[in-house]
Amino acid sequence: MVAHSEAVPRRRRRSHRAVARRFDSAGPFTYVFLILVVMVSLFPLYWSLVVASHDNAAVYAYPPKLLPGPNLFHNIHRLFNSGIVSVDFAKALVNSAIVSSVVTVTVVFFSALAGFAFAKLDFRGRKLLFVLVLATLLVPVQLGLIPLYIEMIHFGWLNSLKAVIAPNLVTAFGVFLMRQYIAGGVPNELIAAARVDGCNSWRVFWHVILPAVRPMAAVLGLLTFMNTWNDFLWPLIVLNARNPTVQVAVADIATVAYTPDYSLILTGCFISILPLLVVFLLLGRQIVGGIMQGAVKG
């Protein structure tokens, strides 16, 4: 009887441990699945490297070429040599860096500022204004293209980077993200303490809110940098081949000749991805931390 009553809890303990192990540790199938996901995700990048390191015929080769070839540096040289390609690719990279950096900084700054106002300041019409800001998310981007284009003509900003930067200085998504983070993550007492210490609203924002939203600012910053760097449609409309961003430059390479030079196009694509990888590697840890923190704080 005693032996039986001891055996039951032991078996139960073992089964508890088995369940815990099943959820805590990854089995071989998990690894196989994850490796497949990684391969599918990385293949386009790898394929662009493979094609970028061969000549144009590699795209049509059968069986397809799966290993990098010897022509990568030759293609890079061709890409940056404006005599061969019609666009100034170096200038396009610099332009994209300028546009993405400026837009990232302003989106993070203004989103945090507006998020702070919507989350913590008391003013008439606050809820209505916030709903209006959110409502702009429902409007398709394409709907604003023509009015914005006319506006840029009136400003005289066509073919200038200002035309790409100005419409993107702040986003409704950024404001929403920051508002939610500040409302849940910054205690009202902290703001009250800052006010008693001598802060006006601007100083509260600068000394208390901005340091507190750093993790979410990194997340929003990376998302904005990626979106702006990869933005194609609006820069294509307002910029020309003499002053392009990198995506416009790649498109220009693709359309300049009767037969597209895929090795050159994919060299451009491959190089255009590198800055994003660098930014992600630099901010990765903070971003993951920020996402987790946001998840916990709701």
Binding site: P187, E189, L190, A192, A193, A194, R195, V196, D197, G198, C199, H207, V208, P211, A212
Partner: peptide, 28 residues
């Protein structure tokens, strides 16, 4: 508030998380 010559201690302490103890005390 800052011109009333009062100091307040809060229920949750409301210390600035990114500042050191010294900076928290010196901030005001």
């Amino acid at each position: 508030p800052p011109d009333r010559d009062i100091a307040m201690v809060f229920q949750t302490y409301a210390l600035y998380p990114h500042m050191t103890v010294y900076d928290n005390m010196a901030f005001g």
